[in-house]
C-alpha cells in the first residue's frame, strides 16, 4: 500500500486553475521529486498534502485513510507529515534542542535522549544549547530536518530546501539531507525547480507543468527520454537538429528512413563525439571553445546547413576556433 496517494487533485485560486487533475503515489521510503518551473503549482500541491490548504476536487489518502477531499480535511496537526521550508523557519527564540522538541510530547526535558539521537543523526552533536543565529545556514537546514523528523512522520516534504544556501554548500547539504533521510528510513518528497537537485536526490521524478504531471520516471529517463521539447529544455542543455542534418552525423542513416526530413530531434551536448578532420573530410567547423573546468564546451557549425550546435567534450585534446572536425551523434531522441 502506498504511503501517500493523490488522486485527480484540482485547485484554483480566484479564477486561475493551479492544479488540473494531478495524480501520483508515494511508496514507503521512496524519494520522490516534484520538479517544475515556478508557478507550476508544486508548492500549492505540497501545502494541500500537508493539510495547510483546501483542494477543490480529487482525494488524498495517507496510509490508506482519506485525509483531503473537496468537502473535508484532516487538519495539518493530525497528519504526521514532516515539513522543511525554503526559509528554514526555525523558531529564532528557541535553542536547537527546544526547536527539535517542539513536536515532541513532554518538551525538551523528557526527550533529551531523542534529541541527542537526532543531533547525532544530523551530525551536530553537542549543539543542544545553540541558538539558530549562532549556526550556519546549512546547519540550520539540518536542524530544521531534525525538528521535522522528531515526531516520526511519514513522509517528509521539503520545499526548495536548498535555494536559500550558497551554491557551493547546496550539493553538500543535499547529500547530507539525503543520507539523514535514508538513515531515518523515511520517505520524502522534494519540491524544486532545479533539475540537478532533483536528479541528485530522487529515485523518481515527476515533471510538473501548468498543474499537470507531464512526465514521470527515473532521473536518467527524464533526462535522456523527455516527452516534449519543453521538457527536454527544462531538464538540461538541448540541441534540436533536423533529420536532414542528422543523416550526416550518424553511422547508419537508414534508421532515419521513416522520419520526415524536416522533423527535429533532440541531441544532448554530451551525446556528440568529435574528432579532428581526417582524409574523410569534415562535417562541421568549431566556432568557439570555452573551457568549463572539468570539460570543454564547443559551439560547432554544421557544414551542411550552417546550424550551430553546443557540445560538451573532455579536454584530452586541444581544440581551436575555425578547426574543421568530424562530428558523430551517439544518442538522439525523436518526439513522435
Amino acid at each position: 500500500m502506498p504511503v501517500l496517494s493523490c488522486d485527480e487533485i484540482t485547485k484554483s485560486f480566484g479564477g486561475t486553475q493551479v492544479l488540473r487533475g494531478l495524480s501520483f503515489e508515494l511508496d514507503m521510503q521512496e524519494f520522490l521529486c516534484l520538479l517544475g518551473p515556478s508557478g507550476c503549482g508544486k508548492t500549492t500541491l505540497l501545502r494541500i498534502i500537508a493539510g495547510l490548504e483546501m483542494l477543490n476536487g480529487g482525494e488524498i489518502r495517507l496510509n490508506g485513510k482519506v485525509v483531503s477531499t473537496a468537502a473535508s480535511r484532516v487538519p495539518p496537526q493530525h497528519r504526521r507529515i514532516g515539513l522543511v521550508f525554503q526559509d528554514v523557519a526555525l523558531f529564532p527564540h528557541l535553542t536547537v534542542a527546544q526547536n527539535i522538541a517542539f513536536g515532541l510530547k513532554g518538551g525538551e526535558r523528557r526527550n533529551a535522549r531523542r534529541i541527542d539521537e537526532l543531533l547525532e543523526l544530523i551530525n551536530l552533536p553537542g549543539y543542544q544549547k545553540s541558538y539558530p543565529y549562532e549556526i550556519s545556514g546549512g546547519q540550520q537546514q539540518r536542524v530544521a530536518l531534525a525538528r521535522a523528523l522528531a515526531p516520526n512522520p511519514e513522509p517528509i516534504m521539503l520545499d526548495e530546501p536548498f535555494s536559500s544556501l550558497d551554491a557551493q554548500l547546496r550539493n553538500q547539504v543535499r547529500d547530507e539531507l539525503h543520507r539523514v533521510l535514508r538513515d531515518a528510513g523515511v520517505g520524502a518528497i522534494l519540491v524544486t525547480h532545479d533539475q540537478s537537485e532533483a536528479f541528485g536526490f530522487a529515485d523518481r521524478v515527476l515533471v510538473l507543468s501548468e498543474g499537470r504531471v507531464v512526465q514521470e520516471g527515473a532521473p536518467e529517463e527524464i533526462y535522456t527520454e523527455p516527452v516534449s521539447p519543453w521538457g527536454a529544455r527544462f531538464v538540461g542543455e538541448s540541441n534540436f537538429v533536423s533529420v536532414r542534418d542528422l543523416r550526416a552525423l550518424i553511422d547508419n542513416p537508414e534508421e532515419l528512413s521513416d522520419l520526415d526530413a524536416g522533423a527535429e530531434v533532440l541531441v544532448r551536448p554530451e551525446a556528440f563525439s568529435v574528432k579532428p578532420a581526417d582524409m574523410n573530410g569534415h562535417n562541421a567547423v568549431i566556432e568557439t571553445v570555452r573551457f568549463g573546468g572539468n570539460h570543454v564546451d564547443l559551439t560547432v557549425r554544421l557544414a551542411r546547413s550552417v546550424q550551430r550546435v553546443q557540445l560538451m567534450v573532455g579536454f584530452d585534446r586541444k581544440w581551436e576556433n575555425g578547426q574543421p572536425v568530424m562530428l558523430q551523434v551517439a544518442r538522439f531522441r525523436h518526439f513522435g
Partner: peptide
C-alpha cells in the same frame, strides 16, 4: 513581520494548534 508564514506552517505540522503557536512562538517574538 518577524514571524514568517512558514513558521506557522511548521508549528502546525508539528502538531501545535493556533493557541500553542500563539503562546509559544508569536508571543515571545
Amino acid at each position: 513581520s518577524k514571524i514568517t508564514p512558514s513558521m506557522d506552517s511548521a508549528g502546525m505540522a508539528l502538531g501545535a494548534h493556533y493557541g500553542r503557536i500563539f503562546r509559544e512562538v508569536h508571543l515571545p517574538l
